[in-house]
């Protein structure tokens, strides 16, 4: 991992922790951005962590760009020695895989897809060596995912699968992006998952849909009353496959403002995870379900 610094005009510094994605790069980015926030450097306007990089927006009338850069390099040195342990949350996200709404949408944009004769999920299952759609769904909902970035549009989480790299699901983005994606579509592009927080353009493969609100600008959803965006970088997501009846029941609860996601506070230690990912994520899941 070689950290690379670049100015983004006169108001941003862009820091690439690593060119490729890894949990190490993500944790380093997360710990430096935390240090930047805590450092109270005058002139810092926004600190945005991303998958394997981060960005600081600053006011060059308050701090010179070169001085801002020097401060960040200092914090990077300190962060390199910090332990990769975070206090975070594990959140269960119910998913209705191969639902009629994303299906209608993916059929509408079939000519923009690598494999017009297949569905997004069947295509991804095939190129990842799964024997059936069900097997892909089992892999997708089997291990948890890290929220490695929140953005693109309001409240959209990017998710990174917590398994060995060889087992990570990978799929290309659409050849040409769609102009439409249903709200709350669960998608996948490259090695990343995403949950589309709003309806709109998108290029990720569409696997299913969740009934669970994750962004509510009107703040009517009970658990989004304090803040309209659910996810934070560092959150852990566990998908659960649900059928049409369970989906409809959840939607009825959402509309009655009675839906609450299952979530628990957890401490995550990167070294322990890396020693035995399967056993470690199994323990996280036990915690989620109060075992």
């Amino acid at each position: 991992m070689a950290t690379r610094y670049s100015y983004g005009g006169d108001e941003h510094i862009f820091v690439e922790v690593d060119e490729e994605m890894s949990l190490d790069a993500f944790f380093k980015s997360l710990s430096i951005t935390k240090a930047v926030r805590e450092s109270q450097i005058k002139g810092v306007a926004e600190v945005c962590p991303a998958n394997a990089s981060f960005q600081v927006k600053f006011d060059p009338d308050v701090i010179k760009p070169a001085d801002m850069l020097a401060e960040l390099k200092k914090l990077e040195d300190q962060a390199a020695h910090s332990e990769a342990v975070i206090d975070t949350r594990i959140i269960e996200v119910p998913v209705f895989y191969e639902d009629p709404w994303t299906h209608e949408t993916l059929m509408r944009f079939r000519e923009r897809h690598q494999d017009p004769n297949s569905t997004d999920l069947a295509y991804t299952a095939r190129i990842n060596g799964y024997a059936s759609n069900e097997e892909l769904v089992r892999a997708h909902s089997g291990a948890p995912w890290f929220v490695s970035m929140v953005g693109f549009v309001a409240g959209l989480p990017f998710l990174y699968q917590m398994v060995e790299r060889a087992r990570q699901i990978e799929s290309p983005k659409y050849l040409r992006p769609r102009t439409d994606t249903p709200k709350l579509t669960v998608g996948h592009g490259g090695c990343f998952g995403a949950i589309y927080s709003v309806r709109g353009a998108g290029g990720y493969q569409m696997f299913g849909i969740t009934p669970m609100p994750i962004y509510d600008p009107k703040q009517e959803t009970p658990y989004l009353r304090d803040f309209m965006v659910l996810f934070r970088p560092g959150d852990i997501v566990k998908y659960r496959s649900i059928d049409r009846d369970a989906y409809d029941a959840a939607i009825a609860d959402v509309e009655a403002h009675k839906f609450y996601p299952t979530m628990r506070d957890v401490r995550f230690a990167l070294d322990e995870f890396k020693t035995d990912p399967g056993a470690y994520t199994g323990k996280l899941e036990d915690l989620l379900h109060g075992v």
């Binding site: 983004g8 005009g9 108001e11 941003h12 862009f14 690439e16 690593d18 060119e19 490729e20 994605m21 890894s22 945005c48 991303a50 998958n51 394997a52 990089s53 981060f54 960005q55 927006k57 970035m149 953005g151 693109f152 990017f158 790299r165 290309p172 983005k173 592009g189 490259g190 090695c191 990343f192």
Partner: peptide
């Protein structure tokens, strides 16, 4: 292509976009 970036030469591992970028 770096892991996670995607195969197109214009792809990067998803990162923040500065205003004006």
């Amino acid at each position: 292509p770096p892991f996670g970036a995607g195969s197109d030469p214009s792809n990067i591992v998803d990162a923040c976009y500065p205003y004006g970028s």
